[in-house]
Amino acid sequence: MAILTFHEWTSFNEAARRSLTRTLAKFDSTPARKPVAILTAWRGELPDASGRPYPEAVRRKLNDQANRRLAAEVRRRGLSIVPVVGAGQEEGEGGVLTANREESFLVQPVGEMPEKEFLAHIKHLLHNPTGETGGGPHPHTQWGGVVKLPSRPGAFIVHNHGDPTGPEDYHVGDHLGTTARPRKAEPYYTQLRYGPRASDSMLDDLDKPDDLGTIKGRPGRRFTLGDGS
């Protein structure tokens, strides 16, 4: 057996973490070994104490701070993190598409963890992603997140039903589908931040040079969850 130096080991480990195939396998319909979730503390609408929206630069700064605290909360719970970008493209009036991109995390247990325990962590993190004191709701309380459990064939969104008062309110699910595949034209996808860049078929006219996760002019690889192939 070859013995790797620490540098080699970290290189191989990082390469594996970046692999799109490996990431897709986390969401595959065949039983995966561990549960996985996609979370963020970012909010598109972030009002100040008076209810007015923060200016865009402030919103982004506060969202970044919230995500750093979310990352700490995730690790404190014995979960691992891979940074990704979550994206959605809403069709508005007249068919005009609006893109929304969020700094997000793929979250999994470091070791073995029963899926009920994992889901309980996710519910807590959705309700209080930044570890605030008090019962909430908190400034960065989330609507929901994506979850895939080993015992279930498909990924789903777990979310609250409006005005959540605690983690227990996150019990509503909506099926996303049983397949994870490279993104083509789907209006929602997850984008890897590092590693090889997206192929042309993963891109569209809404991509901008300064988008999240875009390095040297191209975004990272993208995948989408859904039904069919």
């Binding site: 959605g88 929304n100 989330q142 509503v172 909506d174």
Partner: peptide, 24 residues
Amino acid sequence: PSTGTNAEWLTHHLRLKGSQSFDV
């Protein structure tokens, strides 16, 4: 109130496509 997040939009997008929610 709204979070303005992808998760919230996607829930409504799925509902528009005929998805029915379930109790997790």
